[in-house]
Design a protein around this nucleic acid. Structure first.
Lengths: 149, 149
DNA sequence: CTCGGTGCAAAATGTTTGCAAGTAC
DNA sequence: GTACTTGCAAACATTTTGCACCGAG
């Protein structure tokens, strides 16, 4: 087996992912992939757009945005807080946890005492003021599962 | 001590909260407070707006939106997913957890094996397909603490 | 060559801001 | 009476959509 740099292997992984899902390997997608995989700051599409533009001078924002949504569908990257949704409010201040449906964006509260009791790691509490803790589970809710089999 | 209905006591609590923070008790705020406290669906400002409009016919969306932001600052309600922010992406698919600064919206990754190992409650896994789990801590990050003392 | 991908422009959606008029205290 | 609130309208930010052209396979 020939040796390859981590850059090459990452690129190959990317090609595989694409062909696996019937996606074409375009320079835009490659550049976006490289940029987003090296970013540590949980970037928005806009931030990646700005960075990728340095290489691909006239790439459009849509391409970046659409590509990143595509990537998150493939499971190459993940969408985290925020989720691009309008602000939502919760009047329940008691400890509880959330299941979030990635399809309909619904949030279901649940209670679980063992989760309420988790200890905040010292390296976090040393640096930050923690006001709230919760467990967030993500997946597909009942109604969304039934909708499309 | 005179008895009072839970409605009265909730209203009194609300009045207290307001005077505590130097806020005036207006009909709009009262109506919004009542609506949001009884909602179970993690409503957006827009949803509350639609509901409150049935009582206060010509309340504006801004008032609802501003009031709810005010309430969340007072700690009467809490902002949950989504946070009204643009979509953000995370290339790290390995188990890890998030500290989220409620002031600057920054997300800091951290690792904690005991968190990775939490068990999904049966009543959740029975109903839903759970694809991902994480602990989300919220509070104020170092730089935001330093900024305003 | 073909179909999916891209760039552009416009529309849709959600949020924020400035200000004059109104109202709780 | 005063300062805080409200409603309105406009500005702003972000996301989505439609379509003609382009290029990877």
């Amino acid at each position: 087996m020939p040796k390859m740099s981590s850059k090459e292997s990452a690129l190959n992984q990317f090609r595989d992912k694409c062909s696996e899902h019937g996606l074409k390997v375009t320079p835009q997608r490659t550049a976006i992939y490289e940029e987003v995989l090296h970013s540590k700051e949980h970037p928005t599409a806009n931030l990646i757009y700005k960075k990728v533009r340095k290489k691909l001078h006239n790439i459009s924002f849509d391409t970046v945005n659409r590509t990143m949504i595509t990537f998150s569908r493939l499971g190459v990257i993940r969408v985290v807080e925020g989720y691009g949704e309008p602000k939502r409010f919760d009047p329940d201040l008691e400890p509880h946890h959330h299941f979030r449906c990635i399809r309909c964006n619904g949030i279901i509260d649940f209670h679980e005492q063992t989760f309420d009791e988790i200890d905040i790691p010292k390296n976090i509490s040393k640096q930050f003021t923690v006001l709230h803790k919760k467990v967030v589970l993500e997946g597909i809710c009942v109604s969304c599962q039934e909708e499309k089999v």
